[in-house]
């Protein structure tokens, strides 16, 4: 086979020198750069707005740097420890939840990827059915209540433990994995579970990274579960707070304007978006590392 230096290079980096190739590269850089720009400009506005006064947000339609730089919205948000506490709660729930969910999803996907397993099609059909049909909010709430999970952090994790959509994608990824190593391990006396933990999971790092990200973000962004299942306000997660400040609220609609209430201000909205997005953004580069290391699969010798 080929020499080791190429094998350890990321898949995307290859060398070409033809003219057409260079033209393509230039166009590609411009195109993707432009794409990044149109996603990032409005976000800069959100960031800038979070540091601007309410008056300025009303007075200037669009800006990337506030005329008067203030941190009052952030001071307001961090004035009491509620936000920090909910941030901490969210981080812990997200971390634990992601591990549980990835483990459950991957361990169910593995047997489903084995075409020779009797009963597999039936289970798959059952799973696909839940992609499009669901009992609804109220019956799910009743199940959670009857399991005694109300006011427990597990209520934020277990009802969403396996996303059928992800399950099927993971299953498909497993089907593409080379069988040679699994065979070898079996011959060495490993049972299927051993093969899964010792061979398959280590081989699936890019996929694990991907779905960890998906699950983590799903838990992170979930505001409905804490709202329905958690009555104890001290256990609320960050998104409940975010949602409260950014939802298209009836409070601002005509007539419903309730003078007894202070409205979520624009600047505050923006600041909350920034706070709720930053931590999960920091998570991504760690995973990105694994995407680049996808070459592991290639180490299997035929």
């Amino acid at each position: 086979m080929s020499d080791n230096t190429t094998a350890t290079q990321p898949a995307g980096v290859r060398h070409y020198s033809s003219l057409g190739s260079r033209v393509f590269d230039t166009l590609n850089i411009i195109l993707l750069g432009g794409l990044a720009l149109i996603t990032v400009l409005p976000l800069f506005y959100v960031l800038a707005g979070s540091f601007a006064t309410e008056g300025e947000i009303s007075a200037r339609p669009f800006f990337l740097w506030p005329e008067k730089f203030v941190t009052s919205t952030y001071e307001y948000i961090f004035a009491n420890d509620t936000l920090l506490r909910s941030l901490l709660t969210t981080i812990v729930v997200t971390a634990v939840g992601t591990v549980v969910q990835v483990l459950l999803t991957f361990s169910m996907a593995y047997p489903l990827a084995k075409r020779y397993l009797p009963g597999r099609t039936l289970v798959l059909n059952l799973v696909i059915f839940t992609l499009v049909f669901g009992g609804g909010i109220v019956p799910t709430y009743l199940v959670v209540r009857d399991l005694g999970l109300l006011d427990s952090y597990w209520a934020l994790i277990l009802p969403l433990a396996i996303n059928p959509f992800y399950l099927i994608i993971v299953k498909s990824f497993f089907q593409e994995l080379p069988q040679a190593l699994e065979e070898a391990a079996r011959i060495d006396g490993c049972n299927e579970m051993g093969v899964f933990f010792k061979i398959v999971l280590p081989l699936s790092k890019p996929i694990i990274a991907t779905f960890s990200l998906f699950y983590a973000v799903a838990i992170w962004n979930d505001y409905m579960s804490p709202l329905l299942y958690i009555n104890d306000n001290s256990k609320w997660t960050l998104q409940v707070l975010v949602r409260q400040l950014t939802s298209p609220d009836a409070a601002n609609a005509i007539g419903a304007l309730d003078s007894a209430v202070f409205f979520p201000q624009q600047g505050l909205k923006f600041a909350v978006v920034v706070i709720a997005t930053l931590p999960i953004l920091c998570f991504y580069p760690f995973l990105q590392k694994h995407f680049a290391k996808g070459v592991l699969i290639g180490s299997v010798k035929e």
Binding site: V138, Y141, L142, R145, M224, L227, L228, S247, D249, A250
Partner: peptide, 19 residues
């Protein structure tokens, strides 16, 4: 007191009525 965020108050009211 169960404090419920205003934006989702009606949803929670319905679930509470059902429970």
């Amino acid at each position: 007191i169960t404090w419920v965020p205003n934006a989702e108050y009606n949803e929670k009211t319905n679930v509470t009525l059902a429970s």
